[in-house]
Simulated scan of single mutants.
Amino acid sequence: MSITIKDVAKYANVAPSTVSRVIANNPRISDRTKEKVREAMKELGYHPNFIARSLANQSTQVIGLVTPGSSDVFFQNPFFPTVLRGLSEGAHENQYALQLVTGQNEEEIYNGVVQMVQGGRVDGVILLYSKVEDRILMYLRERNFPFVMIGKPFNFVEEITHVDNDNAQAAKDATDFLIELGHERISFIGGDENLVVTVERLTGYENALTQASLPYREDYILHQSFLLEGGQDAVCELMELPLMERPTALVVADDLMALGVLNTLNELGISVPEDISILSFNNVLTSEMARPPLSSVDINIFNLGYNASKHLIERLKNPEVPVKRVIIEHEIVKRFSTEAPVHK
């Protein structure tokens, strides 16, 4: 015979409605009662029927996740597994599942989102990126479908709940760090120019140069994909500059790109940090395992994901909650890829 809510209620000495509210993680139920009911569920081997609950509540208990661009970047870049851990933990705490939309190109991803939303497969959506121009964002807004972004919206900032770092300040801090070491020729290797994070970090880099009265050089600014190959292509282009005009330091927008930079410089016989310093972003395992280990801006990726889940679910439970901008702190983690320039 299967265990029911009534059995759990009797075992825990509470009302069946209280058990239902504990399963739904209702904030009005005290932590003590929640613990008692969950212990009873565990002792009796009771597992809630979420499909039945979803039908009754007209809710799927599923959040859709939308990746940027090609699935190559998503599956190869360590940023995404880390942000997924945060998203998953935030969703699990509230008994939500995650559904991922990927594709080989933007058209496939857009079509996947339309099918997911119109098919009623998810209650809300989290965009794992922010673009300058984005059909998916406009589609979700037009349908008034609940969504949250990781990254600052390029438009409608006051209308969209988003979880982000202060990317302009983070890039300025990174550039200032290199300037304080004595570097004057500093290059910026950024990602896709249609990503708001790239726009913001380039702004921070420019602000640091301006404040330090250092020249801004167009040939020091490169944009590539957030992949090993992106870093390799960018540094090859920089190394074509005359020897005395080459940068002595690089701000690289992503650790995986920075690893590509390191590999290429090693092949060219250029030493890091003796000949050129590298400061990258994300502080994932890649940065620690690199040789030399990379100095990196820790943007607390896990917290980005966790807070995105938390605030979307909060919005799903109460559509009247105000729009929020949640800023996750960053810090520079110094390792062995940065030092003062030997020759300016």
Rank of each mutant, 00 (worst) to 15 (best):
G269V: 05
K172E: 11
N303Y: 09
F145N: 08
P81E: 03
V326K: 10
Q104M: 12
G230D: 03
A290N: 01
E331C: 14
V125Y: 03
D275H: 04
E267A: 13
K334S: 13
R217H: 14
T198H: 13
S296C: 06
S30C: 06
Q118A: 14
F75C: 12
V19L: 09
A258F: 07
I126K: 00
T210I: 13
I51Y: 13
L55G: 09
Q104S: 14
E106V: 06
D275E: 05
L243G: 01
F156I: 04
N49Y: 15
I109M: 11
I332P: 04
L195P: 01
A9P: 08
N25W: 00
K334R: 15
T102C: 14
H223V: 08
N155I: 13
L87Q: 04
T18R: 05
L250G: 08
V323D: 00
A168R: 12
R32Y: 11
Q232A: 06
L285K: 12
N318W: 02
F154L: 11
I63W: 00
V73Q: 14
L214Y: 01
N282S: 14
A15R: 02
A308T: 07
R121N: 04
E331V: 13
M116N: 09
L259I: 11
P242W: 05
Y96E: 05
A212K: 02
H92I: 07
V19W: 05
V326D: 02
E240N: 10
I109S: 12
E89F: 11
M239C: 09
L256F: 08
A56Q: 13
Y205R: 10
I328E: 04
E180S: 05
L238S: 00
R135L: 12
I189K: 13
V14Y: 05
G305K: 07
A170F: 07
N266M: 13
